[in-house]
């Protein structure tokens, strides 16, 4: 995509069109092409109008840059919507068996993610209410950061277009989550802290590192489960996409 000769802002035109190419990547061809052509036309007309009005190059550059930058949020939201619509369309033409499998995995992922998020939120509330106020918020920063991360991961998991990303977020957050909970166990529940201490004592007697390894078993399990979900969702997405773009009589030959 080259900037047009004779226009005041060929460099800026190229930059804006690169941004368009970036956020339309992976979208249905028609939607991506329409958006790219429409922005290319807009940039050309904007430049032409500026030249006709004898506007300074600086003012035109600023105006185009402002329009591009302030619209970036809307561009990303538009992309999300296009992806969701495309996914829904592909799912609607997928075979009933594939649809059932996909919705089962998606429901399971959302249920597990919601359970983890609720437990995380509940433990954070306990920590915030039990930690002495004199210690300040800095002492629980890790717990708060992990909670925000988990809630964002749940949000991603709830959206069909970012479900795989959500599962990967959960997997990535499992270790920090486990570490934050382990650090603050005595502020979450004294009973839980005692149970953990007695359960880890035999391992700690052998090796401090072994006790740590055992302490993180829930994190390993969460990583394994969420990674499995991400892999399965990806495989199902690919099969759904394949079915959507393959004539009905050929899909039976694919499996």
């Amino acid at each position: 995509m080259k900037g047009r000769a004779g226009l005041p802002n060929p460099g800026l035109t190229v930059w804006v069109l690169r941004w368009v190419a970036l956020y339309t990547r992976g979208l249905p061809e028609g939607a991506a092409r329409d958006r790219a052509d429409e922005i290319a036309s807009d940039l050309f007309e904007h430049n032409a109008a500026a030249v006709a009005a004898d506007q300074s190059k600086r003012a035109t550059t600023l105006s185009i840059l402002t329009r591009a930058l302030t619209g970036m949020g809307a561009d990303v939201l538009w992309r999300e919507r296009q992806l969701q619509q495309e996914h829904r369309r592909q799912l609607s033409v997928a075979s009933p068996a594939l649809r059932t499998r996909y919705s089962r995995v998606a429901r399971g992922a959302v249920a597990l993610g919601a359970a983890v998020a609720i437990l995380t939120l509940a433990s954070t509330i306990r920590v915030l209410t039990n930690v002495p106020t004199a210690w300040g918020v800095s002492s629980v920063t890790g717990q708060i950061a992990v909670t925000v991360g988990v809630l964002l991961a749940l949000l991603a998991l709830l959206r069909s277009s970012s479900r795989i990303l959500g599962a990967l977020f959960f997997a990535a957050l499992s270790l920090p989550l486990c570490l934050a909970v382990a650090q603050n166990t005595m502020y979450i529940s004294l009973t839980l802290a005692q149970v953990m201490q007695s359960a880890l004592a035999p391992f700690a007697a052998t090796s401090y590192y072994l006790a740590f390894a055992v302490l993180f078993i829930p994190a390993y399990l969460l990583i394994a489960v969420f990674m499995t979900i991400a892999v399965r969702l990806r495989a199902l997405h690919r099969r759904i996409r394949l079915e959507a773009y393959t004539p009905a009589h050929e899909t039976t030959m694919l499996y």
């Binding site: 807009d42 007309e45 402002t66 591009a68 619209g71 809307a74 561009d75």
Partner: peptide, 29 residues
């Protein structure tokens, strides 16, 4: 079309600049 619509909106609402690309084309869609 896109640019003339943005220019017309800006003219109608004096003091307001041209509508952002993302906002305009998302709303048009």
């Amino acid at each position: 079309y896109g640019y003339t619509i943005a220019a017309s909106i800006a003219r109608a609402d004096e003091g307001r600049g041209l509508t952002a690309h993302g906002t305009l084309y998302k709303a048009l869609g």
